[in-house]
Design a binder for these strands. Structure first.
Lengths: 193, 193
DNA sequence: GCATCATGAATGAACAATCATTCATTTAAA
DNA sequence: TTTAAATGAATGATTGTTCATTCATGATGC
């Protein structure tokens, strides 16, 4: 038998891809640069992915799925829908603090025209949003005429957009503190109440 | 004397660039394709721009400036700050309806890592947001503890994001009607009240 | 325990395609 | 005739991808 596949190489390719996409966008993350950063041969990733597009897409799928799973866990644990939304937003901040790249990776690719969230994930997100509305309305925590888009936008898009504004220092302020986080939570929740 | 510069060629280059960036993103809008679509020689645009980046950047600058000017006009005409915000959001919808590409062009590039709004424009936007807060608080139409980011996000980013969600048919619905537009206006205004 | 073989993990030079950019040349109007 | 507008073939760098080759190691026979 031949030697075993070195899993650390794959992990390194993943990490390098993530970092380079975040830093330079999809176009700026070329195979040769990814391979160099991962200390791996240029053609190596083609043993696992049929193309650069597939590599990045599968990575995106995974990161989004992590969020979906987290969100579903919250919904199982809490009947208080405001708590669920708060936990989700704080999770986004938390990821941005600890593994900053992951949240920016999603942010970059979600707005890139080479990509789109898979239909199944989009459907999952839609269903979750509808469940949020149903539960929130039932126990009187949310407005009755909420749309899927409003929940999605204020639960995910707004916080991610805020985080990126702060990471880029768009209005001169970099980073955030506990008060900022709570302010975002309240802002998003209020808009849905 | 030699002949005069054919202005329609420049206009065609602009239009082609806009359309292709919207359709395929910055990376997908190559010089050769732009030139082909504009029915112009490949190297022609270099008579007016020193690079592809400069061409696209100046186009972005112009489109954003149009919005800033529109917004400033609204603020001169109306002391009712809610009316100003409503007009701005309706203008975004209007542009999306009539010259769909312009609003998508901004949306694509604003999230592309090859670009950023110029410092001067960013400063202008910041100042306008602060003025909105000042006026809105003075006549009791807006909350007292509003941040620049909240005004910017709900006045511009949210509507643009909504429009793109609908253009892409993200949740299955394409386009919008008058009721949708008013709902967005109300949603954004309420979040700032 | 050691040498050998067979396997497939890993490499990286080579490929064609495409990229942005240049500039000698052509063209047409002043 | 003069001038500069306009062209588009050519350039060199870079792209994603391929595949013949190399290399490390687990299995096998002694």
């Amino acid at each position: 038998m031949a030697r075993l596949i070195d899993q650390s190489k794959i992990a390194r390719i993943h990490a390098a891809t993530l970092g380079l996409v975040v830093e330079n966008g999809y176009g700026g993350a070329s195979i040769s640069v990814i391979a160099k950063k991962a200390c791996v041969a240029e053609g190596y990733l083609y043993r696992f992915y049929s193309s650069k597009q597939e590599l990045v897409t599968s990575l995106l799928y995974e990161k989004i799925n992590n969020l979906i799973v987290k969100l579903q866990e919250y919904m199982v644990l809490h009947s208080d829908i405001c708590k669920v939304i708060e936990l989700l937003i704080l999770e986004l901040f938390d990821q941005a603090e600890t593994v900053q790249d992951e949240i920016r990776f999603i942010h970059v690719l979600i707005h890139d025209y080479n990509f789109q969230i898979s239909d199944s994930q989009r459907e999952e997100i839609k269903i979750i949003c509808e469940k949020v509305i149903e539960l929130g309305v039932k126990n009187g925590q949310l407005r009755t005429n909420l749309s899927t888009e409003e929940v999605y936008t204020m639960g995910i898009v707004y916080p991610i957009e805020f985080i990126n504004l702060r990471i880029k220092g768009f209005f001169g302020t970099n980073g955030w503190n506990e008060e900022d986080k709570q302010k975002v939570v309240n802002f998003c929740l209020n808009s849905l109440k």
